[in-house]
């Protein structure tokens, strides 16, 4: 058992590209399961109401029980097959079932992991499955281990709204292609994110802190790449950072 907040799935493709995807813990999966159970009970309830008047009392009881049983198992299979690894509950909680190595999810994997719910839900309320999920290094329950799948959570990619920051002013930095490319190469995503945050929240900062913050950011960026002096000497620190952000976040025109 680890103590980190999230576990990450590390995939390294043969082309040496690495993915780091956050895994879903047992609590999130339990919440998704509750939602799924509600959906299943809705489906079985409607079926009972709809088909009830049509069939005789005797055979209907057995048939309804069988249908309820089939639906509770088949719901997971059908949803995950149709929606590429998501059920209704998982969609709401933004989770997804994926192959452990990042390959395409095979139908046999989905069938297998849903069939193994029978042992995961022993003795009650997925106790076995939950404990195995907690203890497993990849947050897998028994069904996931057998089917070689994991459940990941989607991280929302933060797409910055640039227009309110940049305001459409002319940016002389973009003219210098080589220096711009060098800047994009050198600056880490974390630093770019910090600069963008600062830009977005500049109105909320105290004046002195604002000046200090932007001078520090400008100094950091100047340390990475030196733009020609005739461009930068007339720019304030804030305008300098604004230009840098535009260079970093605007896709270069081909």
């Amino acid at each position: 058992m680890t103590t980190s907040a999230f576990e990450y799935l590390q995939i390294r493709t043969p082309e040496a590209i690495e993915f780091r995807i956050p895994l879903a813990g047992p609590v999130t999966r339990m919440l998704a399961l509750f939602i799924d159970l509600c959906a299943i009970s809705v489906i079985t309830g409607t079926l009972q109401k709809v088909l009830g008047p049509f069939l005789k009392a005797d055979s209907i009881a057995g048939l309804l029980m069988l249908m309820g049983f089939v639906i509770s198992v088949g719901y997971g299979m059908a949803c995950e097959l149709w929606w590429r690894g998501q059920t209704v509950g998982k969609k709401i909680m933004r989770l997804r079932v994926v192959d452990m190595e990042g390959r395409r999810l095979e139908p046999s994997q989905i069938v297998l992991r849903n069939l193994l719910r029978f042992v995961d839900q022993l003795p009650a309320f997925y106790l076995v499955g939950g404990l195995v999920c907690l203890a497993s290094s990849k947050r897998q329950r028994l069904g996931d281990i057998a089917a070689r799948t994991v459940v990941i959570r989607h991280e929302d990619p933060f797409t910055p709204d640039l227009e309110q920051v940049l305001g459409g002013k002319y940016n002389s930095f973009l003219e210098h292609r080589r220096l711009s490319a060098k800047l994009r190469d050198r600056v880490s995503p974390a630093l770019a994110g910090v600069a963008l945050e600062a830009m977005l929240r500049r109105e909320e900062l105290e004046p002195q802190s604002r000046v200090a913050l932007f001078s520090e950011l400008a100094a950091r960026f100047r340390a990475e790449v030196e733009f020609p002096a005739e461009l930068t000497e007339q720019l304030s620190d804030e305008q300098y950072v604004r230009n840098v952000i535009e260079v970093l976040y605007r896709a270069p025109k081909a």
């Binding site: 057995g62 029980m65 069988l66 049983f69 198992v73 069939l115 193994l116 719910r117 029978f118 042992v119 995961d120 028994l142 281990i145 057998a146």
Partner: peptide, 22 residues
């Protein structure tokens, strides 16, 4: 019949106990 269905799939799932449960 539902009982037998549950028994059979439980037998499948208990394969995770290295086959002993099955």
């Amino acid at each position: 019949m539902t009982h037998n269905t549950q028994v059979s799939f439980l037998a499948l799932a208990l394969g995770m106990t290295f086959g002993l449960g099955t």
